[in-house]
């Protein structure tokens, strides 16, 4: 085949690439934004909720509503945690149509610790290990059938897991 055609297409590609980059710069789009958009496309990470200091702000950022108390959510947490760096917390619920379960620690510098998406077919039972800066309420929020339910339990911490 002729090298002319190859040269032509290569040059053409370069020009197009250059033009594309220039357009991006012209619009003031920096590479950081591009990666953010890519991350958002893939089951997006709730960045804002994980920046919120207070538990109320985090829940609002995550769900846009406030939870109501429920006796159908059972949280298993220790009364006293000797090591705040590793506090085992688990939750089970008899609520139907659970879509999400989140764990928050009121007194942590960032209240939201973990948020789990529960698709249909996955059981609404989650166990994990979290850090606690000091004695605090641990809050578990369950989203079920479009409604929000919450339970809270105080866990006493003798050695903090977030302090310096």
């Amino acid at each position: 085949m002729s090298t002319m055609a190859n040269d032509f297409s290569a040059t053409r590609r370069l020009i197009l690439k250059g033009a594309g980059v220039l357009t991006l710069i012209g619009l003031g789009i920096v590479p950081l934004d591009v990666t953010k958009v890519l991350a958002a496309a893939n089951d997006k990470y709730p960045e804002e909720a994980f920046k919120a200091k207070s538990e109320a702000d985090a829940i609002k950022a995550l769900y846009g509503k406030t939870p109501e108390p429920s006796d159908k959510v059972k949280m298993d947490a220790p009364e006293i945690a000797e090591n705040g760096a590793v506090v085992p917390i688990s939750v089970t619920t008899t609520l139907a149509d659970v879509t999400s379960i989140s764990f928050l620690v009121s007194e942590n510098p960032v209240a939201l610790v973990a948020s789990y998406k529960i698709p249909a077919g996955t059981l609404p039972n989650v166990a994990n290990r979290i850090k606690m800066a000091r004695t605090s309420n641990v809050v578990v929020v369950v989203e079920a059938g479009g409604k929000l339910y919450g339970v809270s339990k105080e866990v006493k911490v003798t050695v903090g897991g977030c302090g310096g």
Binding site: V110, S115, K117, G121, N128, I130
Partner: peptide, 25 residues
């Protein structure tokens, strides 16, 4: 090919994180 569980984590999850869940199907 189907998502059965997604964890969104912050810095408050313990070092060497552990998680347990269950699903059907």
């Amino acid at each position: 090919g189907k998502n059965v569980f997604t964890a969104d984590w912050g810095g408050g999850v313990s070092k060497d994180p552990y998680v347990k869940f269950a699903f059907k199907g």
